[in-house]
Amino acid sequence: MGALEESKVIHNLCNLEVRVNTTGLKGGDTGYGGRTEVTLLNLGSTAMAGRVDGQFPDRAEQITIEVTGDAELFALAEALEWAAQRLRVAIG
C-alpha cells in the first residue's frame, strides 16, 4: 500500500494478529489517494464477530476497517488511541 505496512502478533489464551497498512498523508480527501486499513486476524482461539451498520454480528476470522483521506487517518488514529486507553482502564 505504501508508506507503512506493519503487523504484530499477540499471544495469549487467544492468538491475534493486528496489521496496519497506510499510504500516509496524501494532501486531502479520498480523491487524493490516501487509504488506511487496520486488520484483526484470528490466528487461533480468538472469538471475533463483525457488525456493519448495526446489523446482526457475523463470526469472523478477519476484520478490516478501511478509511480514505487524511482527516480520516487522523480520526481513526485518535479513535483507536481512545479505545485502547478506555480498555486499559477497564482491565485495571
Results as ranks from 00 to 15, higher is better:
residue 62 Q to W: 05
residue 59 R to Q: 11
residue 59 R to P: 02
residue 56 F to Y: 09
residue 60 A to I: 03
residue 15 N to E: 09
residue 28 G to Q: 02
residue 8 K to S: 11
residue 13 L to N: 14
residue 30 T to M: 11
residue 2 G to R: 09
residue 85 Q to L: 13
residue 75 A to K: 12
residue 8 K to I: 15
residue 43 L to A: 05
residue 34 G to Y: 00
residue 54 G to T: 03
residue 48 M to T: 01
residue 88 R to V: 09
residue 15 N to L: 07
residue 6 E to F: 01
residue 4 L to W: 08
residue 55 Q to I: 06
residue 44 G to P: 01
residue 11 H to N: 14
residue 86 R to L: 11
residue 28 G to W: 05
residue 29 D to W: 08
residue 39 T to L: 00
residue 49 A to W: 04
residue 36 T to Y: 07
residue 17 E to K: 08
residue 65 I to E: 07
residue 53 D to M: 06
residue 70 D to G: 05
residue 39 T to G: 03
residue 38 V to E: 05
residue 90 A to M: 13
residue 65 I to D: 04
residue 21 N to G: 08
residue 21 N to L: 11
residue 53 D to A: 08
residue 27 G to Q: 03
residue 31 G to I: 02
residue 5 E to R: 14
residue 75 A to W: 12
residue 16 L to N: 02
residue 8 K to R: 12
residue 32 Y to M: 14
residue 85 Q to H: 15
residue 33 G to F: 08
residue 85 Q to V: 10
residue 87 L to W: 09
residue 67 V to H: 01
residue 26 K to R: 15
residue 9 V to M: 03
residue 62 Q to P: 01
residue 60 A to V: 08
residue 17 E to A: 07
residue 92 G to R: 07
residue 57 P to D: 00
residue 69 G to Y: 01
residue 52 V to S: 11
residue 69 G to P: 00
residue 30 T to P: 10
residue 71 A to K: 15
residue 52 V to I: 11
residue 16 L to I: 15
residue 75 A to V: 07
residue 42 N to C: 02
residue 15 N to R: 12
residue 14 C to K: 10
residue 75 A to I: 05
residue 90 A to F: 13
residue 44 G to S: 03
residue 91 I to K: 13
residue 25 L to C: 03
residue 50 G to N: 02
residue 40 L to G: 03
residue 82 W to Q: 13
residue 8 K to E: 10
residue 59 R to G: 08
residue 13 L to C: 08
residue 89 V to C: 03
residue 71 A to R: 15
residue 50 G to P: 02
residue 22 T to D: 00
residue 73 L to S: 07
residue 27 G to P: 01
residue 44 G to Y: 02
residue 8 K to P: 06
residue 53 D to C: 04
residue 49 A to E: 06
residue 50 G to T: 07
residue 4 L to N: 09
residue 3 A to F: 10
residue 52 V to C: 07
residue 48 M to E: 00
residue 30 T to N: 10
residue 34 G to A: 12
residue 37 E to I: 04
residue 89 V to Y: 10
residue 8 K to N: 08
residue 45 S to P: 01
residue 29 D to Y: 12
residue 84 A to R: 14
residue 71 A to Y: 13
residue 18 V to T: 09
